[in-house]
Design a protein around this nucleic acid. Sequence first.
DNA 1: CCCGCGTGTCTGTAATGTAGACTTGTATAC
DNA 2: GTATACAAGTCTACATTACAGACACGCGGG
Lengths: 110, 110
Amino acid sequence: MPRASLGEFEQLVLLAVLRLRDGAFAPDVSLLLEREAGRGVSRGALYSSLSRLEEKGMLAVSVQAGDDTRGGYRKRRFEVTPAGVAALRNARDAWDRLAAGLDDVFREAG
Amino acid sequence: MPRASLGEFEQLVLLAVLRLRDGAFAPDVSLLLEREAGRGVSRGALYSSLSRLEEKGMLAVSVQAGDDTRGGYRKRRFEVTPAGVAALRNARDAWDRLAAGLDDVFREAG
DNA sequence: CCCGCGTGTCTGTAATGTAGACTTGTATAC
DNA sequence: GTATACAAGTCTACATTACAGACACGCGGG
């Protein structure tokens, strides 16, 4: 049984999809993740997270017929569901509550 | 081989230890987690995370001879190392960078 | 003594994270 | 028009992380 809360990578993936606003494709997510999170993403990691997130009802997927510039292949377009947003919000809130009063610790310098 | 980045639960545990400032004991961490993250914590989950974090060099542990009020048992006192703080900071930064511009999405209401 | 409580350790298993090979359709180069 | 290179995905296999609950141990009280 999947967990209610999101794993670390799942959070980032969900966030990236959200950032891509209306309908993200997997490769874009990968690129964004690499750029903003400074973290290499393998196909396996990405697609399995995406699928799991879909199963959990946090991502809605719509398949697209191949009519793109080049590849022209069935592509999957992802969109975060309200449940996904809620889960993300929960994760962030838990972090914030726990991190309350720790600003000094995190402040630069290190 | 452990990973460089922290898992979701590991982050929360580290944060809780940090919050307890000078030397936290496992049960306190558990309590804090339950209170602030609204999440039940089983012994297994907690202690294995704590140990892993220690192996990764993100927590420093000092054993305490039994001289406490009641049980009088060897207790372990945890403290977050600079590496731990750095890892936490990285995690938070990745989140923030990815969440940039999504304030509207997270804002209440939903 | 035996019991319960507080603190930890251990075993086992499920979910999550990762790498990389394999597939399929299209396009570009010869 | 066959070989090559891409692009987007699927699949297999395995490592790490997350959990639950049983078991162990020391001490105080009855």
